[in-house]
């Protein structure tokens, strides 16, 4: 039988890079990414799973990084805003957010982008209401959300047009 431990060894792939670390098992994934790996693009806005600022992708699914323990990610594949910016996966969304000023202070932005990306991956033709609903777990205090919805809508349109041509 395995013994419970307060410290454990984890091995995971973060943004394509294999990482091994000893972690305190109470450390959540975003704390781990920020404190151990210096990946500070994922933010803490509430640390109780409401605001979406800590959104990261684990094994292909976006999750609340504050509600996942680093220990649970042993063997997992984790992607963050840094990795997804580096590989161009978010490039069109980032461009559209920039063009429409769909961010002000930028604190919610990484989580907002990852959430938008998941919607687009699943539903190429969302209505404005569907976009709003999908983003409704991500808090932004600065914008009126409208520029964000506009940006996501524009990317949907552009991707559809590109697919059609």
């Amino acid at each position: 039988m395995r013994e419970p431990a307060e410290i454990m060894e984890v091995k995971l792939v973060v943004n394509g890079e294999t990482i091994s670390r000893r972690v305190a098992v109470r450390q959540n994934l975003v704390d781990f990414l920020r404190e151990e790996l210096g990946l500070t693009g994922s933010h803490f806005g509430c640390e109780h799973g409401v605001c979406g600022a800590c959104t990261v992708v684990v094994d292909g699914e976006m999750v609340r990084g504050c509600l996942v323990l680093a220990a649970q990610c042993d063997g997992a594949r984790v992607e963050t805003i840094e990795g997804l910016s580096g590989n161009g996966a978010l490039a069109d969304l980032q461009r559209a957010f920039h063009e429409r000023n769909a961010l002000q202070c930028g604190f919610c932005t990484p989580g907002m982008l990852l959430t938008a990306a998941e919607l687009l991956a699943r539903n190429p033709r969302p209505s404005r209401e569907e976009i709003r609903a999908h983003l409704s777990g991500n808090y932004c205090r600065c914008t009126g959300y409208q520029a964000i919805v506009d940006a996501v809508e524009a990317v949907c349109r552009a991707r559809r047009e590109e697919a059609a041509s």
Partner: peptide, 20 residues
């Protein structure tokens, strides 16, 4: 568009908690 927004979009902002 704001020139300084690009790094925020790439997760390259630097808020106080990002400084060690």
């Amino acid at each position: 568009p704001r020139a300084n927004a690009k790094r925020l979009l790439a997760g390259r902002g630097q808020y106080v908690d990002d400084i060690r």
